[in-house]
């Protein structure tokens, strides 16, 4: 598909899904009143519901999805590994651990920036060992990621068990499966700057990631500075994913599925996959968030439940293709 058309279709899909997401909520609100609010008018109740409750949820969903999609595409490009993504590699769970420590041990109250800062530090701790393993066997990398991921998830459970707050334990699922329930503009303020920085850093790496398709020597011979690419990829992923996780918890598999969905629609070069992955990630996450609200269940489903159902089959498919590397 021609690139401008692909970008336009994906952007339209993301916007349309975000608008659809504004129509959903516990309080029924006729479309006419929602449209009036979006047009700049509307009654006070409708304005409160749409602008203060539903709009932040949609914005955080778009930002988190775009960030996870971009991070997945960038990590797959850098590591030359179709299974790489922030969730599988442990960056998201480690960021969740950082956020949980900040929230439930009182650091987050000291300064609003400390919550994303702790999440970013968690992501850095997970990414640093992994990015230096690039070029190792793809499965070795994924196994290392699984180990980090499990350790971080256990850390989240432990931290919430030990937390002085009696309600903390109920939060395990939210942090490890992700949720956009009850987001506010405070969450938007955390996520958006991190998303802009993270995406800015990662989208700028396209050329270098293309060069890396030829392997490290091939890329370096084309003038790519590997150590700089590694640093920028680590920083962009950590900042972006840290901000995303601080606002929405660790949502797995978006970064895995999205690049695979858009890659066949591009020329498959890493640089061509980055921006479409951002747009498709935004659309997919908002769609999943619509899904958790539409699927009837006693309590609202976690986002990670939906993305895991989408993502695990894709993961297994590529794992099977990589299986020859075991022998």
């Amino acid at each position: 598909m021609a690139r401008p058309l692909l970008l336009a279709v994906l952007a339209l899909a993301a916007v349309a899904l975000a608008l659809a997401s504004l129509t959903l909520g516990p309080a029924p609100l006729p479309l006419g009143r929602i449209a009036a609010v979006l047009a700049g008018g509307g009654d006070t109740t409708a304005r409160t519901i749409v602008l203060d409750l539903r709009l932040p949820r949609a914005i955080v969903g778009l930002a988190v999805g775009a960030m996870l999609g971009t991070a997945g595409a960038a990590l797959q490009g850098y590591l030359r590994n179709p299974l790489a993504e922030p969730g599988v590699l442990g960056a998201s769970p480690a960021a969740a651990l950082g956020a949980v420590i900040a929230l439930f041990f009182g650091f987050a109250g000291a300064h609003p920036l400390l919550l994303p800062a702790f999440a970013i530090m968690g992501a850095v701790a997970a990414l640093v060992p992994l990015l230096w393993l690039a070029g190792e066997s793809p499965l070795g990398l994924i196994l290392a990621g699984v180990a980090i991921s499990s350790l971080a998830a256990a850390g989240v459970a432990l931290a919430l068990n030990l937390a002085p707050n009696p309600f903390a334990l109920a939060e395990i699922a939210t942090w490890l499966m992700g949720s956009l329930e009850d987001r506010s503009f405070a969450d938007v303020a955390v996520t958006l700057p991190c998303t802009f920085i993270g995406m800015g850093l990662l989208l700028g790496q396209g050329r270098a990631l293309d060069g890396l398709a030829l392997g490290e020597d091939g890329a370096r011979a084309l003038g790519v500075r590997i150590s700089r690419v590694r640093l920028v990829t680590a920083a962009g992923t950590a900042i972006g994913v840290g901000g995303a996780v601080a606002a929405a918890g660790a949502i797995g598999f978006v970064g895995l599925v999205v690049p695979h969905l858009v890659r066949p629609l591009t020329d498959r070069a890493p640089s061509s996959v980055l921006l479409p992955s951002a747009l498709a990630g935004a659309a997919l996450l908002v769609a999943a968030d619509i899904g958790v609200r539409l699927i009837p269940s006693p309590t609202e489903l976690r986002l990670g439940v939906v993305t895991a159902f989408l993502g695990v089959p894709v993961f297994l498919y590529y794992l099977r293709r990589e299986r020859r590397l075991w022998s």
Partner: peptide, 12 residues
Amino acid sequence: YLPQGATLAWPL
């Protein structure tokens, strides 16, 4: 420079 055993990570 043409590396030994030229490999390509993606099906371009």
